[in-house]
Write a protein that binds this DNA or RNA. Sequence first.
DNA 1: CAGCAGGGGGCGG
DNA 2: CGCCCCCTGCTGC
Length: 467
Amino acid sequence: MDGGLLSLKWNNHRSTFFYVLSNVRKKECYTDVTLACDGKFYPVHKLVLSTCSEYFEQMFEQTQCKHPVIVLKDIRSEELESLLSYMYVGEVNVVQEKLSGLIKAAECLRIKGLAVPDEEPATTKSSGGSREKRTSDNSLSSEAKRRRQDDGSSSQRQTSSREETSRRRADQSSSNKFNRNNASSSSSSVNSSRENRDSVSDHRTTSRDASEPNELHHAQQDNDIELKAEELPDAHEDLPSEVPPEDPGDAVKQEPLDLDAVYLSDSNSASDTKDMLVEDSFGEADGQQHFMDELLGQNSASDQHGMGDYGEGGEGSSSSSAATNQQQQHMGAVWTDDLRDSCNWPDLMDHRPELLPSSAQLSASSAASIINYDSLYEESLQHENKTIGRRTSVLRGKRHQCACCPYSTNDVGNFRRHTRIHTAEKPYACRFCDYRSAQSNNLKAHVFRHHKQAQRTQTVDDVQRLK
DNA sequence: CAGCAGGGGGCGG
DNA sequence: CGCCCCCTGCTGC
């Protein structure tokens, strides 16, 4: 076996991966989860989140939702941005006074390396640099500079996405440093929900010595190869310089409601079954092309695919709807109703006690929820103030634009009511059975249909009790 | 049958 | 004026 075994190594695999990953994040391609925080929306990748946080990993495992929107409470957007940089780049610079807040946020989200010990991918044969236990506070930077020695293991097929992403992180860690002096806010009062995950072996922070991240390219050139794989054209060649200083803010959709991006398929359905599916169409078609282009080292002409305006009221401005149609057409084979169906809201509902605790519980126990009504609503209002309000209200007066779907209305009550579709909030509970409804009228109708007699009796009892 | 949304009316600040 | 409640109609299963 050894005799015929050739190890093909892509010399610049890491750097290319990082570069592409950086780009897809910047361009919001392939994002499959949206973090909502402080009224901002951060389209990101489950892969990255789950790699960097078992908390996210478990969350994603418990919902098959294609594109969940995770509302982060008790975390400030600046902290989240820093954490995202940390997760994507593997490194973030933070000023001293902001550190505690960042750490707290990291603890809430159980970010590996910051809040919980990192674990080395099992199949990665690290050449075993010194692994030192990280002490969170002062290792933000050194953490990011960790191991790269395992570059050479590409002959192993990577079947674990986590492992793969860990590699990316390693790559990212080697990239240019992201200087975030504005990483902010230590005022977070987040309760540390860090759990004892110390069973995880605490391999980490092979503090790769100080070789400067920017020297990645050269450093990687040092890697030995058994058989030089055909390298990509020069996408990676210019990587250190091409990779822009990662600014999470750039990735933030400041005006998410203007975007085609967040499209939530809310195909309603029988009783509890509901597709909680957020389709992210952030120019994915373009993105795919771009991805290939990136891999091929070509510059995609579709750099600016961005998000088109959502269009008012979801009817869609001609441009946006055209864009969306184009995207959907483009990705027709990818995004089908079947896929929508594969996103089973009931799955989420089944775990709702875990995933959707009350806001109070959330505040106390965890920092994230998948669609928290209050947050979503508040964020929607914030956004509409920022965007819809700015753009639409001029024409139509106060306009409420759903953050998750094209729905919009002038009526705040209707808007609240609509929001419950996405939050699955059913505040109206039947007294006589376990039926719950999002609308009072539905409950009323239900009671009328099924519990007319019981209701009559109950009413009599109530009257007597009052007497 | 249930979910959803448009719209009207009442009420309180 | 904003909010809430309610009625009503439409839609899909």
